[in-house]
Amino acid sequence: MKAILPEARAFASIIEALSRVVDEASMKFTPEKVVLRALDPAKVSMFIMELPSILFEEYDVEEEVKIGFNTAVLLKLLKRSKRDDKLEIALEEGYAKFSIIGAYSKLYKILNIETAEEELPEPRIELNVNAIIHSEPLKHAIKDAETIGDVVEFSAETEDELIIKGKGETSETETRISKESGALISLEVKEPSKSTYAIEHIKNIVSLTKVADTVEVSFSTRMPLKLAFTILGEGKVTYFLAPKVE
């Protein structure tokens, strides 16, 4: 099996976020796409990556294979990639080979780890608020909230505004994402909703805002938060986080 992804740096940002959620993960290569689903040890968040074969410059996968890896180890290699570098992933005799192809090639050969975990099911969930916003304001809202306390509250009452609040013991920060400011692209509110999430988990995926200009934010009161990032046009990284229930 061999696949060449033209944007190694984008993949590095994805793995960077993933490495903060789990220490080990496995990518399943099928003839159509690459799928990765990981659940954090506390079982409150899930990281899903789907890269269809069309994203790859070369995609040679005849039968389904799995590559299990240590996320920190893979990240170390990927971090060394520069802009315009490509990433080649191949499987050879029990070893996963990751190569950065650019001005010169760097090859990393790691033992394919049998992560031997059950396949995580495709999450099915209906949420009342579905917003598409620019990812920069999301990153800033979360960073602001981090300075105040350890929870962040997402709320939407009308289809004009998405509000992200950071709540601390004695203070609060508020980021209003609206069409006027240009940060809000679309907002559907089936029912006014408000839900709180732990920052220690959300901040892990902030690095994904580097690779996606927009993000789909969905939530319902006392239900999980869903953040979906479109990567390189056709790929998707989705993050689910259980609400913080008092």
Partner: peptide
């Protein structure tokens, strides 16, 4: 309160 895992929220899992 029985802290819920993410899967407790998904349908039909």
């Amino acid at each position: 309160e029985g802290k819920k895992s993410l899967f407790d929220y998904f349908k039909g899992v």
